[in-house]
Design a protein around this nucleic acid. Structure first.
Lengths: 139, 139
DNA sequence: TTGGATGCAAAAGTTTTGCACGGTT
DNA sequence: AACCGTGCAAAACTTTTGCATCCAA
């Protein structure tokens, strides 16, 4: 099974909770926060403690299985699966809708930057915000 | 005086605390969090409550005097002056050093995106991270 | 004078931690 | 068996809020 291999390959123990978390992340197509993960697992009769969610995600972020995602209008940390071909989101400040942006405008840029600066650049977080067509009037 | 005009132009009252906050933001050349602003003001014998710092920055962000800045490795919100010609930061996950990146790789991109998506895009937050030359060994 | 700004204290929201116990390898 | 993962409870940290008072316009 694939999910188990993801964990094994990174040297993390295979547990029901971690598999559950990864399944949730695989199902949803937007970044989720710890509480939403806990709730979704609870809905499927998997009890899990918030600390466990935090720790599991932190561990998985460490080894690159998941990415932390920030939105400048929200103080929480969100997580998403680190799929190949990463992407970013457009988000509406009013209705909070998220739209995936196809392709990343920064891939080449980041590589150039790494060469120029001698940094080992491991990733980036981009958050583009504004008002969606429906919300432009009622700002 | 310039700082006062910035507030006046945006319809915000001119107060000692707000001027103090703006002076701090003008002095430092990196994004700061509320606590650092409070401490810096205290160092200059200006007493200010944390709530006031939060509220002032929120108000000033609202009208575009300052920008909120997020770093994916930190849960706090940082603020910087909204100077013309905005920029982004490269930050080291190990030593936390920040380096300003000249120019923004997203200006044109954001404009295109706005046209394509019919969104009214008001801004973006970009955070590029990795390891600086000095920290690459001791990851 | 009037409405917005501030201080204070309390609460809410988010994340981290220590320790005992349980489950994977 | 050894070590890592998990639950629980508590604490730490960050941000927000209500209300009384103060201050700029």
């Amino acid at each position: 099974m694939e999910i188990k291999d993801v964990l094994k390959n990174k040297g993390l123990k295979i547990t029901k909770k971690r598999i559950g978390i990864l399944k949730v992340l695989d199902m949803v197509e937007y970044p989720v926060d710890v509480l939403e993960i806990k709730d979704k697992l609870n809905d499927n009769d998997i009890e899990i403690n918030l600390s466990t969610v935090y720790r599991a995600l932190e561990d998985m972020a460490e080894v690159g299985i998941v990415n932390r995602v920030n939105f400048s209008s929200d103080t929480r940390v969100f997580y998403e699966l680190n799929r190949n071909g990463h992407h970013h989101y457009l988000h509406c400040l009013k209705c909070k809708a998220l739209v995936i942006i196809d392709g990343c405008p920064l891939d080449d840029y980041q590589e150039d930057l790494a060469k120029k600066t001698k940094y080992d650049l491991t990733g980036h977080n981009l958050d583009i915000y504004g008002y969606c067509p429906k919300c432009q009037d009622k700002k």
